[in-house]
Design a protein around this nucleic acid. Sequence first.
DNA 1: CCCCAGGCTTTAC
DNA 2: GTAAAGCCTGGG
Length: 290
Amino acid sequence: MNIEEINKGIVIKNIQNFHPIHTFECGQCFRWNKTDDNTYIGVVRDKVIEVELRGVDLYIYNISQEEFYHRWQDYFDLARDYSIIQEKLKIDPILKRAIDYGRGIRILNQDPWETLISFIISSNKNIPHIKKIIEYLSRSYGSMLIYKGKEYYTFPTPKQLSGLSIEEISKSKCGYRAKFIHAAVERVSNGDINLDYISSLSSHQTREGLISLYGVGPKIADCVMLFSMGKYEVFPTDVWIKRLMEYFYFKKPTSIKEIRKFANKKWGNLAGFAQQYLFYYGRSHGEIFK
DNA sequence: CCCCAGGCTTTAC
DNA sequence: GTAAAGCCTGGG
């Protein structure tokens, strides 16, 4: 990678297989917002980051080169060669179509705690509403950051949320999910469950551990594993993926369990990448599956 | 007004 | 084991 430090940021020259729109709109994250053409601002852990694709060069603002190698290369998954992944997956003609459409997707390496709560909130909700709830929680209980004179808020830590009543959490408009969030805060902040430890286990054990949380089922567990724990063999199967898989592969109604098994066998430790390309393609071509 | 939105828990076969 | 009902809330 050809990287240069510039005023207030870095630039990666001639970047391959990274596009901000595809990466930030493919459903894996909720705190990146478009501010201009090919420009996004996001709060990641304890920093506000601005990303802009200008031609073939990627500008990342509010970080140094040293920080890039220390944290952000991993967060944006920029050390991974996605062309190899794409080559392997493109053997499948349907994936070829999906990859051609979403070529610039990268799977972000997000914070497990934030990812867990975000996907607990996501159940039975649309994306704008999910983002609103997360924004409310961050503004109310996170820490304030200033970037270019504007206020931003970190996603609250377990400690910052501990002690809140279910009623207080409900003020975020998260509805019946408040009791799930409350339970997760309790179990994580009192040390009953340690997300870093859980992520170090085998995929099966990680999954079991996550599902042991109240309000966390197979779909949410898979999202947390894929988006924040580097478990790339999972295949989060939601209603969109289910519809798409039935339409393209099974030609008949198929259980989620069977779809996951199929994907695992077909794509192995690349199933998570396949899911992201398919999901993004499916969301953008939803009318096909009606 | 009714229906749905990136699921889960509970209850009933 | 698998299948259906009910769930908070906001927007169409």
